[in-house]
């Protein structure tokens, strides 16, 4: 038997509201803790890493020890140090490409609200972009600009455009006939201002959930492209290209593989947890 909760909620200030909104779900809080810790470790890699990431030594493929906590790779480089520097590649992709793709996607999504013919054209463009699944898009971009970090940056941005575009379009469609939007239009608010200032702020919740999902996708794409030699190029360390090489030495130093595996999983799952928590709080009220 559930008891009815009749107590009125305590009034909250906007700032408290913002904090509760982000940390209100324990799942999201756990995700934020994991992701922030790992990205901070990557940011402070020069201070934290016990060895230079590309410092080769004769001690190749050693197991875990007190000097090399995760052992060394085939060139005697410290695996832990390379992981810390490898996280930076993901951080760059997350900070640069995801916002760029999101911004472009949201802008195009808003444009669909301006005119019917524009909507039709953009819809077809999104359809074509979505037909390039994440890795097929990665291969396409890598064959145009050549393998490397730039290919990863472009791929992640491009893949996100139709995802954000579609969500924004849905918001535009559902919100533009609301009374307050109609009222704003009637008093003469210009179409673009109407979309940006009146429609967009009320359609922001699903976009924030998508942002968390896209960050997870970004880490996935970086790893996958680097794993198949189309992403971050050696000797520059990335979690994906470390895993690719480690597979040949699993019997000599398994930590070479386990380290990057754990970090990639924590990042991907961490962002996913944030998305799950936010979905719960924002979309299923």
């Amino acid at each position: 038997m559930a008891t009815l909760n009749v107590a009125a909620p305590m009034p909250v200030t906007p700032r408290q509201h913002r904090i509760r909104w982000l940390f209100g779900s324990p799942i999201a809080t756990a995700g934020i803790a994991v992701v922030v810790t790992l990205f901070a470790a990557g940011l402070f890699a020069p201070l934290l890493a016990p060895f230079p990431p590309n410092g080769q030594t004769n001690a190749a493929l050693q197991g875990a020890s007190t000097t090399h906590l995760l052992g060394t790779d085939e060139f005697g480089r410290d695996v832990l140090s390379r992981i810390l520097y490898g996280i930076r590649q993901d951080a760059i992709v997350a900070v640069v490409s995801v916002p760029a793709g999101a911004l472009l996607g949201v802008s195009l999504g808003l444009l669909t609200g301006l005119a019917g013919w524009l909507d039709t054209i953009l819809q077809r463009i999104f359809d074509v972009m979505l037909a390039f699944t994440a890795l097929i898009a990665g291969v396409t971009v890598a064959s145009i600009v050549g393998p490397g970090l730039p290919a990863v940056l472009v791929t992640v941005a491009v893949v996100n455009v139709p995802l954000f575009g579609r969500i924004t379009r849905t918001s535009v469609l559902t919100l533009r006939n609301r009374d307050y939007v109609v009222a704003a239009r009637v008093v003469g608010v210009r179409p673009i201002r109407l979309l940006v200032r009146h429609v967009l702020p009320n359609g922001v919740d699903p976009l924030i959930v998508q942002l968390a999902l896209s960050l997870s996708l970004a880490v996935f794409i970086e790893g996958a492209m680097s794993f198949i030699s189309l992403g971050v190029l050696l000797p520059q360390p990335s979690l994906g290209n470390m895993l690719q090489k480690s597979i040949n030495y699993l019997d000599r130093n398994p930590w070479y593989a386990i380290g990057p595996m754990v970090v990639v999983t924590l990042l991907v799952v961490g962002f996913q947890l944030i998305a799950d928590g936010l979905t719960h709080r924002l979309l299923r009220r």
């Binding site: 994906g240 895993l243 597979i247 593989a257 595996m261």
Partner: peptide
Amino acid sequence: TTLAFAVPTYVSGVLLVLVLAVIFPILPA
């Protein structure tokens, strides 16, 4: 299912090789 959904194939694949081909050599790598 949350794990299976989120863990990238290049992580689960290397893990499978590590467990089923290196530690317990029952399947070809």
